[in-house]
């Protein structure tokens, strides 16, 4: 049988898309479907039936609005911190590292070759009583003698900032590297000082990287629960912790599904709004 040329792309797409449809699209639809189920009266734990109980969403949200809020606040803080740390780093690698550019780029990613979990545990040690941070800060009287850093929001945000850093640095580097350094020189030549050059030329030209980096950091951070479990305490629980425990400890699938679906939709809405806003700013 002769394959016509116009069929080639569809044949190439078919296996992958069939896979994604079965194991990504269907599950999401199923998730939506599960989210409105209620327990079978008299049934075992874990047995549910479809009753289109949209009230699940109301309960799920009102019971956990603190954790929702916390997830978005922590993720936003981690994203801003990661941006603040990464931007000068990516800028330095793109413009000031000469022939060491590739080596430095490898070094930025290298720490993330050790396991995500081990890194997080390492932060627990670093910020713990036996680490070097707490004694140093105490002897400098920056924190009180009784203050600890582990099991705090500070520790959770620190861990998240660190763990998602390459998702910020790499897109920033990619867009900064594409800037012709002569345009930055031209700005200085045209009477703009360093700060003005950054505001009027460098930052606008690197906006694609800023948008991509903040999204790639914010999305996993908002859904994360590993940092909160290892570095936090019950008072720093994020929405991810709630979903996890609803599934595994309480076996409350409908609430877990409703929470998951809410999280996904909330993120999609935020992302869309953000891209639109950033997109228009870029044109100004």
């Amino acid at each position: 049988m002769k394959i016509s040329k116009s069929q080639v792309p569809y044949l190439l797409l078919f296996p992958g898309f069939a896979f994604l449809f079965t194991f990504f699209v269907l599950p999401i639809i199923n998730l939506a479907q599960t989210s409105t189920q209620t327990p079978i009266s008299g049934g075992d734990t874990g047995q549910y039936t479809q009753t289109f109980a949209f009230s699940n969403y109301i309960h799920a949200f009102t019971d956990n609005k603190d954790q929702f809020l916390r997830s978005f606040v922590y993720a936003t803080l981690a994203t801003i911190l990661a941006l603040a740390i990464s931007y000068p780093l990516a800028y330095a690698i793109a413009f000031k590292s000469g022939k060491f550019k590739n080596i430095l780029l490898v070094l930025v990613v290298a720490p993330f070759f050790t396991s995500f979990l081990l890194r997080t545990v390492a932060w627990k040690q670093i910020l713990g009583e036996e680490g070097f941070v707490v004694p140093t800060l105490r002897s400098l009287h920056i924190i009180g003698q009784q203050t600890t850093l582990t099991s705090t929001a500070f520790a959770v945000v620190t861990g998240m900032t660190y763990n998602f850093l390459p998702f910020m640095t790499l897109p920033l580097y990619a867009s900064l590297e594409r800037i012709d350094p002569r345009t930055i020189e031209a700005s200085g030549d045209l009477y703009a000082n360093g700060l003005t050059t950054f505001r009027r030329v460098t930052l606008p030209l690197s906006m694609p990287g800023v948008v991509a980096g903040t999204l790639l950091t914010f999305i996993p951070a908002a859904g994360d629960y590993v940092n909160a479990s290892i570095l936090g305490s019950p008072s720093t629980k994020m929405i991810g912790n709630v979903i996890e425990s609803r599934y595994f400890k309480i076996v409350d699938y409908p609430t877990a599904a409703a929470l998951s679906f809410t999280l996904m939709v909330a993120i999609l809405i935020l992302v869309t709004l953000y891209i639109r806003k950033a997109g228009t700013e870029e044109l100004v």
């Binding site: 990504f24 599950p27 999401i28 199923n30 998730l31 999305i219 996993p220 908002a222 859904g223 994360d224 629960y225 991810g240 979903i243 996890e244 599934y247 877990a256 599904a257 998951s260 679906f261 999280l263 996904m264 993120i267």
Partner: peptide, 8 residues
Amino acid sequence: PEIVLGAS
């Protein structure tokens, strides 16, 4: 988010 992928 990964948690949604995993849970679904």
